[in-house]
Design a protein around this nucleic acid. Structure first.
Lengths: 368, 368
DNA sequence: ATCTCGTAAAAAAACGTTTTACACCTTCAG
DNA sequence: CTGAAGGTGTAAAACGTTTTTTTACGAGAT
């Protein structure tokens, strides 16, 4: 059916080895024969069959991308950046959705290794250290994105999550918020841990008291976000909420709406990750923006750095991408404590307000 | 390195052909040998190398998915449904983003055919009829989704776009809107054409006069949506906007916000496609919902129906999925004409209001 | 003039499967 | 008793490449 290297060889009057050498430049071929071969290729419209090549080289020209959550647009943007690189290098991209499930992740890793993909780009689940081990063990190139796995000797690209969370929390503090609820995404992954750390650091540096009751756990889905937000809004006197995850932010919005709580009048809200909708809704959502596309693009670059230079394996690199706070309308100064719209009477829990420190007031002057 | 069929054969004391026959059930093997082979496979943890199989069978066990817009969450959901099927059948999924660019689409088609993917699932660009021709010509299974290509003898899965658009428009008419703007997505694809048709049918059936000035063209991106909406809002007296595309809906929201136009007080808005954010924003967005996940899932089912039964090729099937109108808060009765918030004085353009027909009033009673 | 060396091309092996062709045995009908 | 048919196994070919090995040949050195 399709035209093979044999046909080209016959047409050019040379051996198939010569054709292969011309195509791959693997050995020198005389100008005369090279010309003949190139002409034959052009005339027949020959395209090398990747399957034959894959079998012989033990490698399909394919890259695997493992992402944990298809509904999160952040990962869609990461995938976009990866795809751009993959296309540039003429590889194919197999994208899989692990759904935050380590078992599924392990399954994909195994099956893709068996398929001899050239490399992996993975935003790992909480058990990434175990599930990705076979990749490292078989010395298949791997780039970890979004969630760092400490000590793993591979390329890693991630955001300055702590810094972003710090900025967001600081922003709320400067506005005058004293009780800032935290919506925590799936635990056990570095990005969320780092965001918690940034939150705590901002709280502590400003002289506020850290109240663990203000930290509501969830699982990076809308439902969990809604539940966690309701928990916060019903049981504490939080005047602001910082959501550490895209999906949970949606959940928080849902809760606010359901409970009839006005944002930012009653409660301020900051999300993590910018989205198309974040800027067009009312109120516009204040968010910590990540460089999602760049994350994918860089991860791709790091991967192909390994794939193309087969000689010396480069030292693993770790890249931290800047995060920025985008201030919109969902954050504002808190109302008087007595006006807080909460199901419970918050009287007893507000004593910490008295603990304002000199540090804090200085920061307010800075913030404007 | 890895264990091959040869190792299994040696261990079991049989030929590799026998091993192959056991694995694929291609020929009967005596119970005794089959037992030996199975044991050897288990002991060695043998996994067939897909590359060898692919070369011999002339088919990589891989499916290609071509989608036009990665940022549109509708397609993300379609991809999700497809992936579910693909995983179920043990295939791999190569996902590509054509970005509505026929050239890129043609490139992907060619390169994926060369890779011997087992089949395609494609939401085609406007030139799909041409770019997908090589797939049909080479008799590679193809399922077209979301956008019908008339007369193409392949499986097709799409939404009842006309019906959905009709419902949305009718909903606005029943609320009392007389001048309903239409934000048109990329032209040349069936889904948008069908939505326009549904809009026009609703307008005409209700006895209103169709005004082409109310139909604003765009290109299914946020920017175009915003521009088209601004055009409508500035130059006409539309009291409602129906957006035929997810992305353009976001653009419309942006314009509304930018111009300080209140929704639904000043202008009602209906979008096409439901999203996670649509229900949690304020006001909640009235939308026409498609069964996106199901679309992908069904497309996968149709594809594998062809891939598994190699014998008689089944007749091409066309499946139309139901669309539903989800009424939220972004649609309400129009204010008095004189209060419409528009840059232009709309006085002269409102004469059509007098044309109310008996049909229309009956419909209002039905609608409640 | 013979030997070595280097270069360029061809031939053949290899990758890991599936499938075809063939060999052997048993059974059964004529 | 013989020939055909059917069942069960193996050897070998095939898929389309890349890579290793072999061959051919001319130039330069001994």
């Amino acid at each position: 059916m399709a035209v093979t290297i044999k046909d080209v060889a016959k047409r050019a009057g040379v051996s198939i080895a010569t054709v292969s050498n011309v195509i791959n430049g693997s050995r020198h071929v005389s100008a005369e024969l090279e010309e003949k071969v190139r002409r034959a290729i052009a005339e027949l419209g020959y395209q090398p069959n990747p399957l034959g090549r894959a079998l012989r080289k033990g490698e399909a020209y394919t890259v695997a991308l493992l992402l944990p959550d298809r509904s999160n647009s952040f990962f869609a943007q990461v995938a976009w950046g990866v795809e751009e690189q993959v296309r540039r290098y003429g590889y194919a991209l197999i994208t899989c959705n692990t759904d935050e499930d380590p078992e599924l992740e392990a399954f994909y890793v195994s099956s893709l290794l068996n398929r001899r993909v050239a490399g992996f780009i993975v935003a790992p689940t909480s058990l990434g250290r175990e599930t990705l081990a076979p990749i490292v063990h078989q010395r298949v190139p791997l780039v970890v994105v979004d969630r760092v796995i400490d000590g793993l000797p591979v390329d890693q690209v991630f955001s300055d999550n702590e810094g972003g969370a710090y900025l967001a929390t600081q922003h709320l503090i400067r506005l005058g918020h004293r009780r800032i609820g935290l919506l925590v995404g799936i635990s056990g992954i570095s990005s969320i841990q780092d965001r918690i750390r940034g939150y705590k650091r901002a709280i502590e540096e400003s002289g506020l008291t850290l109240d663990e009751r203000l930290i509501a756990p969830g699982c990076s889905q809308i439902e969990e976000g809604a539940a966690a937000a309701e928990y916060l809004l019903a049981r504490s006197d939080a005047t602001a909420i910082f959501s550490t995850n895209n999906m949970m932010t949606l959940g928080a919005l849902r809760s606010l709406k359901k409970l009839g709580i006005k944002c930012p009048d009653d409660v301020s809200l900051v999300g993590f990750d910018d989205s198309e909708w974040a800027s067009v809704i009312t109120p516009g959502l204040t968010v910590v923006a990540q460089q999602a596309y760049e994350m994918g693009f860089l991860a791709g670059a790091l991967l192909f750095r390994r794939l193309t230079r087969k000689q010396e394996a480069p030292k693993p690199r770790t890249i931290k991408l800047r995060t920025t706070l985008i201030t919109r309308e969902s954050t504002a100064k808190p109302r008087k404590v007595s006006e807080v719209a909460s199901g419970e009477a918050p009287a007893g829990q507000t004593t910490e307000l008295g603990l304002a420190s000199p540090v804090k007031s200085r920061r307010f002057r800075e913030g404007g």
